[in-house]
């Protein structure tokens, strides 16, 4: 990224912040409806000092991490199996495709009954959200491997295992990483849904807490942190994509 592109990207947020703070100071709107950036900063400082903010961020991030790993693992296993075996694909894929049509949040009440109000139901909900994009992209990746590449491999005398590790996996990798990126994005969405279901800490809890005690600056702080953390984790995946896929000979504009 060049300095110019960084400056351009920062311009709009800074402008919004300026107008926002000015408007709040001049009381263009009531602070009980939209508190200014100053109020938000004040809450953040307060809550960093008493340690509650870190505790809430930690709760959300660890839930997301566990849910993401579970969803990733399940996506890898199911995706690989259905990607490689035509029989299992015919057997399982229509079912999973059908399940995908259910908005994952619709599972929330059921998970509450099955798994209770603790961490298990929250993590399961996140894992479910993460699973689908990873699974779908991985299967698409496997099915999309160019037959000519495999022919070339055969001509060079590669065995089945070598074909998988040298040709099929690398060829499916871009699609898989796209799935990982999408899965992580959905994971952030579902962590909010999960934490609105009776969480005693976490950023989703703060979201609701702020509303319930009429302190919108707490809700806004939570939203802001979601934006920052979501962007950070996404940047990590993008960096990983760059690194792992550096062999790709593409324009690279899409990423």
């Amino acid at each position: 990224m060049t300095l110019k592109s960084v400056l351009l990207g920062v311009l709009l947020p800074v402008l919004i912040l300026l107008v926002w703070e000015t408007g709040s100071r001049l009381r263009w709107w009531q602070p009980n409806i939209l508190p200014g950036p100053g109020d938000i900063a004040q809450y953040m400082v307060e809550s960093v000092r008493d340690g509650s903010l870190l505790k809430n961020i930690g709760a959300t991030v660890s839930r997301l991490a566990v849910g993401f790993l579970l969803g990733l693992g399940a996506g890898l296993i199911f995706g690989s199996v259905t990607g490689f075996s035509r029989l299992i694909s015919h057997l399982v894929d229509p079912f999973i495709q059908g399940m995908r049509a259910i908005p994952s949040i619709a599972w929330a009440p059921l998970f509450l009954i099955w798994l209770g109000i603790g961490e298990a139901s929250k993590v399961a909900l996140i894992a479910l959200g993460v699973f689908f994009p990873i699974y779908l992209n991985l299967v698409a990746g496997f099915h999309g491997v160019d037959r000519k590449l495999i022919e070339v491999g055969r001509v060079h005398g590669l065995g089945s295992l070598a074909l998988i590790s040298r040709i099929i996996l690398p060829a499916a990798l871009p699609a898989f990483l796209t799935g990982v990126r999408g899965g992580l994005g959905l994971g952030w969405m579902f962590v909010v849904a999960a934490e609105l279901l009776g969480a005693s800490r976490g950023l989703g809890f703060l979201l609701d807490y702020g509303q319930n005690i009429s302190r919108p600056e707490i809700t806004l702080s939570s939203i802001l942190l979601f934006a920052i953390l979501g962007k950070l984790t996404d940047a990590l995946v993008v960096a990983l994509q760059r690194r792992v896929l550096s062999w790709q000979d593409t324009l690279g504009v899409a990423r």
Binding site: Q30, N32, I213, S214, R215
Partner: peptide
């Protein structure tokens, strides 16, 4: 009262 103390008019 809690809500009022937080600025709810």
């Amino acid at each position: 009262l809690v809500s009022r103390s937080n600025g709810n008019p």
